[in-house]
């Protein structure tokens, strides 16, 4: 049987996780190609609509990743993101969306290895879960 290749959209903040992704690249840390980054200035900028749009648009999972608590380039944007993700998880799990399909992590600028691990683990998790419903649904 052909292996399921999930499509994952990642909203990552410019200052921490995007930089960590750069670092992981510079260090040639092998990652699954399933995660596609969208560069945001801050996780606090991630409107819940973006996550919904990605999921409804066929993403099997969404990753949001930014600076560690206390380390936010914009002082506290990540705390705001955490509340929004909490809300989204509450809403979406009720509709059968597995909690693991919306993931929030903190990956600092120097944590290239963390980034690569996060990507690889998430891809494995989602591969195990199988395709998200929306990837097989007519967009409505």
């Amino acid at each position: 049987m052909e292996r399921f290749e999930p499509t994952i959209v990642a909203f990552v903040c410019n200052w921490c996780t995007y930089t960590a992704a750069d670092l992981a690249g510079t260090a040639r840390m092998i990652q699954s190609p399933n995660v596609r980054l969208v560069r945001m200035m801050c996780t606090g900028m991630v409107d819940p609509k973006y996550v919904l749009k990605a999921l409804l648009g066929g993403a099997d999972a969404v990753l949001i990743s930014g600076c560690h608590p206390g380390d936010c380039h914009y002082i506290n944007g990540n705390y705001k993101a955490r509340r929004r993700v909490k809300l989204l998880k509450e809403i979406l799990t009720g509709f059968g969306v597995d909690e693991r399909r919306v993931k929030l992590t903190w990956v600092g600028a120097s944590e290239g290895n963390e980034f690569a691990e996060t990507v690889n683990e998430l891809v494995e998790d989602i591969r195990e879960l199988g395709p998200g419903e929306t990837s097989r649904m007519m967009v409505i």
Partner: peptide, 24 residues
């Protein structure tokens, strides 16, 4: 993308967004 598209669009998107905006 899937060979068909329900019109009007964005129905699920609208309701999910409204849930995220005001269910609280």
């Amino acid at each position: 993308k899937n060979g068909q598209l329900r019109m009007p669009t964005d129905t699920l998107f609208f309701h999910l967004t409204r849930l995220s905006h005001m269910s609280l």
